[in-house]
Write a protein that binds this DNA or RNA. Structure first.
Lengths: 241, 241
DNA sequence: CGTGCCAGGTGCCTT
DNA sequence: AAGGCACTTGGCACG
């Protein structure tokens, strides 16, 4: 059972500092609503002038800065960071930092409207269907979906170019490389399949033909042309049936 | 200037429904802290059992469900969705829906601890440096960073395989295709460069040699091997100098 | 609207 | 720690 969330309306800077600090201490999720500037430096660098935003600090070291639009945070810090809260020149300042790579996020509040520290429990895992793995299972359960006589021999078979999704043989015994995609594919997937086929043709000694089959719900024109150029095949199939 | 955020502690279901409804009406960002289940169906499908989470509804139609860990929301809906709030069997239920593709997110609260409606303004844009575009500018300002005598002729030059980052000529007048990456690259980038070079060799009539140059801070072994196999070149360069 | 491609992509897993 | 790859990838620019 979770504690009631603790909240502060329009706190003073010092109140806020104590509140955030003890929230982080208690491993709570801390949410702050207020007007702030944001600076980031690390893999890239950014600055963001004053605006009203929602800032979330998670106990796992995640930091998120959300504006009123967009699915993505305007700034963030990944899990594993160390959060720090301080007052500077009478203002609340958050710092979230990590090494490897060195990255620092600084949030300076010029006004803090509302603060929440939420101490909840969440043991449930997401159950997701319609993934590439579902597509793999579907084919392994019914290999003829690829073509009559297809026989899977291995999944994640290693090649010098990477791991092949499904490796198998056709009715004539020829080697078949199958590359799976859960959604419509472009040229990049053809490149992937090409690398695997090339690598296996080298691996399996000269002359042995290796067929390459791309399995996805659909394919773009450009990708279809690339497939044709390279003598590769396409089988339309959805991840769930 | 923004209104003070409106908040509700431990509201009844009906209080909460009204609060959320009027928040959405006012184009506020709504944040809910409570125990909920989440169901999603659309490009894929998922279910998530009860847990204490932060749910954010943005006025642009974004929905986010955050647990206490991870940078990414456990469930979400992209901008452009229509939010809806209702009470069902005495519980608060949020629905966020869109068409093309048809997707529906349903959040059922079995306990709502705290609600915030934040009506802020944020006119500031993010200023980001260290991007691929910075790398392009850097090269255009000082083409010899590629090699002495290199002359850029066009950016985003169109080919049947897509747009080339920088197209130019070397000291001997031979065509050069430059592909830019702001960070360390793998085999995928080599595939891209290969497609451009192939397409241009066809475009520029037979025989004319086309050089391909990959520009990035660094390259993986596999990618370096691919580059060598295909007679392509690599120039190490950071997006900012 | 689909197609292509960058992103501070993130997350997961394997070496 | 680095590499490879899937992801409800998201976001943008262009045809």
């Amino acid at each position: 059972m979770s504690d009631r969330p603790r909240t502060r309306d329009d706190p003073t800077t010092e109140e806020a500092r104590t509140f955030v600090s003890s929230g982080l201490e208690r491993e709570a999720m801390v949410a702050l609503f207020g007007r702030c500037r944001v600076d980031y430096e690390g893999r890239a660098a950014s600055t963001l002038g004053p605006g009203d935003r929602l800032v979330v600090l998670k106990p796992d070291g995640t930091a998120l800065v959300h504006t009123d639009e967009g699915q993505q945070p305007v700034n963030w810090q990944p899990p594993g960071c160390t959060h720090d809260v301080a007052t500077e020149d009478g203002a609340l300042v958050l710092r979230s930092e990590r090494s490897t790579p060195r990255e620092l996020l600084v949030v300076r509040f010029e006004r803090l409207d509302h603060a929440v520290a939420y101490d909840g429990t969440d043991t449930n895992d997401l159950a997701l269907t319609g993934t590439e793995d579902d597509l793999r299972q579907r084919i392994l359960a019914e290999p003829s979906l690829i073509e009559p006589g297809f026989e899977p021999r291995a999944t994640e078979r290693d090649t010098p170019a990477g791991a092949v999704d499904i490796f198998g043989a056709d009715a004539e015994g020829a080697a078949v490389v199958v590359e799976l995609k859960r959604r419509r594919v472009g040229p990049d997937a053809v490149g992937q399949l090409t690398r695997y086929v090339d690598a296996l043709e080298r691996d399996l000694h000269a002359g042995r033909e290796v067929r390459g089959v791309l399995v996805a719900p659909s394919v773009t024109d450009r990708a279809r042309r690339l497939l044709a150029e390279r003598g590769l095949e396409f089988v339309p199939l959805e991840p769930t049936g």
